[in-house]
Design a protein around this nucleic acid. Structure first.
Lengths: 138, 138
DNA sequence: ATTGATCAACGAAAACTTTCGTGGATACGC
DNA sequence: GCGTATCCACGAAAGTTTTCGTTGATCAAT
């Protein structure tokens, strides 16, 4: 029983954690708050956009299954927190973008970012320091 | 007839053009070749992964509707090209990622990229030059 | 205890993305 | 001309993501 992989959208077994839009929206709240109940996430999000409570709940449940968040079920009101710190997700998603859109060139992405985003003089100095450290081999 | 926007996944009228995975895969080929027929795109992609011709065709059609690509229909065999140059898409997608994952901080993304990706000494020098130019206000 | 509020679970509909089969039209070689 | 190959259009099925209504359980206050 052989079967070959057709298709171009490298899906399946999304190991390098790529959250969907909605999932990322919720993760941002959890990273911000550290931890939160469904209601807290719901209220936070509702400040910007009307949200339906059960929709938020459903996502938290799905994300728990996927391992994106952890939950404490010891009390009736479950408490959620992101499974990984934002830095880890950032690394993963930046890497992904570099591969898919910059042919693997980190430098190309950095140039593009610097060229189009706003960066303050202080931030520029800090980036320079990072470059120094890099050259020094840490 | 009023209607309010619920939901958290900022969909609908995807103005800042965010191509799907499959769409991006095809765009890469078009950027690389400049222009191509469906067959050419299909063959190019098939070198890495088996592809079904009509699947590629379907995407090119959908992408034409979305405005991601343009096509010359003057001959029976249509010729496709990306609607925008890669730089534009890169800018758009980097900006999007900065907003969604780095709280709007371009610097945060740059630091993360430098910290986790491979960058050669020459590339570091080039980034420095870009930083100089930025400080100089161009 | 009964009522009303709050919460998790479940499931299904809606929306979107991806895949592909079929059919009709045009070109090509004989 | 006739059959074969190539190409586009159409549409539907399969897969994923997003949305939300409903149900049953728990809790708090009467």
């Amino acid at each position: 029983m052989t079967s070959y992989d057709h298709g171009m959208s490298a899906k399946k077994t999304t190991s390098p954690l790529r959250p969907t839009d909605a999932e990322l929206t919720i993760l941002r709240v959890l990273w911000d708050k550290g931890q939160a109940t469904v209601r807290e996430v719901h209220e936070d999000l509702s400040r910007r956009k009307p949200q339906v409570y059960t929709t938020v709940l459903k996502f938290l449940q799905i994300m728990t299954e996927k391992g994106l968040v952890r939950r404490d079920e010891s009390a009736r009101t479950h408490i959620y927190r992101a499974a990984a710190p934002p830095e880890k997700m950032q690394r993963s998603m930046v890497k992904d973008l570099v591969q898919r859109l910059f042919a693997g060139s980190t430098q190309a992405l950095v140039q593009q970012a610097l060229g189009s985003g706003k960066v303050t003089p202080e931030e520029i100095s800090e980036i320079r320091r990072t470059l120094d450290a890099l050259e020094r081999g840490d």
